[in-house]
Design a protein around this nucleic acid. Structure first.
Lengths: 222, 222
DNA sequence: AGGTGTACTGTACCAAAGAACAGTACAGAA
DNA sequence: TTCTGTACTGTTCTTTGGTACAGTACACCT
């Protein structure tokens, strides 16, 4: 992502923090002082390098003439946003850009544990866990779970074969995994998975994986 | 709200627009040029007046040393945030600053209808509406509701007498209002309110008012 | 009638700050 | 081995830009 060197990133971060704290960009001397340079030329060189790489724009002849570019990506936009993930394209990591339907402005730290992405629930399989059709759940990414936790499981849809996310309560005893819907209606049956025959096989045959654990939800309608 | 004169408001707006467009505040000369002053002292005078009134801060000895204050109200901070309202101080409007426990970074437009404030649910009285203890509900401010809607009702706590928010399902038939908890356990009883004897009385005797309607919720834990 | 605040013009001084030039050192790529 | 980029030091020059002082004019309040 960042074409900047370590030092350049530090300096860009300093510019950002100065803007936040003082309301205006630093001078070359401010930067030199901050990083212990004895000459402001060092700061100037860095600024020109950062500008050349397109992260800032230097406005000639203007005191503190530093304009931040690319701030949508860095700060404003996804700082307090979470991606809403629908279906998952084959072979992509779950939060890959192609899988992101949209970004919602919700602070990830609101959830415990912190949410890494969101997923809209379809159907009533988790009704008795008070997760309803249309709810948006926050998922904390991790690749395993404790017994009894609700997980976001990724597995191919029985008909289309496309990978999709479903919420289930997770139980594991030895090599047997149970994914249990929270709905006592007879239509909802636990899914049993036996890991034993897969031992030594290629990863591709694994019928499911854990994308993360349930970390809370948003219900967007009254 | 604004103690600023017309001219001062124009100049403050110019500072804001410069910040947006160039990324840093204007100089005294920039301001003078913009407004056709032949001397930058005019701009300086205005800046000092605006600073004296608390809208900006001038940082002495710094080029472009203009810091915007009060920007929470205008732009930056509470743009995509919602106040979390706990108890309500006597005689204050519900979203008054004293009633705000904290601000949470959630886009108000996420909820339908749009949320105006948040409230943390205590207790299990709305369990059967799938609203649980600890959930944070979004409330859209309006002073009445349709039959069967869930409302945020403000009424004095039976013991402390302090105004507090409770969620109830609202029904009105003529002058009789029913506020119904969504929990069939015998401890939760509907509240009946008869408006008739209050007719013509002072507002103070009204035992409750509707703060708004339920617009969705956030459950911050998995 | 005098005081205070707004809204400027005009001049001047000097510190703040940008920008250019000349170096040094080191690391990795061609 | 040379070239390019990073990461600085040190010096100098010039413009930018803040700030102070001295005015003028007008409106409003007491």
């Amino acid at each position: 992502m960042s074409d900047l060197t370590q030092r350049q990133t530090e300096i860009l971060d300093f510019i950002r923090s100065q803007l936040r704290e003082t309301g205006f960009p630093p001078t070359r001397e401010d930067i030199a002082r901050q990083f212990g340079f004895s000459s402001k030329t060092g700061a100037q060189d860095h600024l020109m390098a950062i500008a050349r790489k397109g992260f800032i724009e230097l406005v000639p002849g203007n005191a503190r003439g530093i304009r931040l570019l690319k701030e949508e990506e860095a700060l404003l936009s996804h700082q307090f946003e979470l991606p809403l993930i629908g279906s998952i394209a084959a072979g992509t990591p779950i939060t890959a850009e192609t899988n992101v339907d949209t970004w919602l402005r919700i602070d990830p730290e609101l959830f415990h544990p912190r949410a890494d992405f969101l997923h809209r629930v379809a159907g009533h399989s988790m009704k008795e866990a008070n997760i309803l059709d249309g709810d948006i759940v926050g998922i904390h990414v991790q690749d395993d779970a404790d017994n009894g936790q609700i997980v976001a499981a990724v597995m191919p849809h029985p008909k289309t074969g496309e990978d999709e996310i479903t919420l289930k309560r997770y139980f594991r005893r030895g090599k047997k995994i149970t994914l249990k819907p929270e709905n006592s209606a007879p239509a909802y049956k636990p899914l049993e998975i036996d890991l034993a025959p897969l031992d030594g096989d290629s990863q591709e045959q694994t019928p499911f994986r854990i994308a993360g654990v349930y970390a809370g939800l948003i219900r967007p309608r009254g």
